[in-house]
């Protein structure tokens, strides 16, 4: 199961780097999704390792929560885009001043 966990770590790091590097908030959001997916992969791997179905259940709940999170997050992005005509994370600086 070790390769699966390493793959999960690599995908998680790629997702985290995406969040740090990209400026488009939608792509940043995709990086978050990739991190959730990477965590799911290790959940499933450990579920098989221990023959415990609870790992798969946790991955399932992560999926559901990710779906809810995406709905709200994209709604926020759309409403920000409406008022500021931009999806770049550099432009959302209202709270800075």
């Amino acid at each position: 199961m070790t390769p699966y966990i390493v793959l999960s770590a690599i995908l998680f790091a790629i997702g985290a780097t995406t969040v740090l590097v990209r400026r488009n908030s939608i792509v940043v959001f995709m990086g978050i999704e990739l991190m959730l997916n990477a965590a799911n992969l290790s959940f499933v791997a450990f579920a098989k390792l221990n023959a415990a179905i609870e790992g798969q259940l946790a991955a399932f709940f992560v999926m559901v929560v990710a779906a809810a999170e995406v709905v709200v997050g994209l709604a926020i992005i759309v409403s920000v885009f409406r008022s500021r005509r931009s999806v770049s994370v550099d432009d959302e600086n209202l709270m800075r001043h």
Partner: peptide
Amino acid sequence: CGLGLVLVLGGVA
């Protein structure tokens, strides 16, 4: 930082 994360997490795993 991303490479470091790969090294730390992957190394632990």
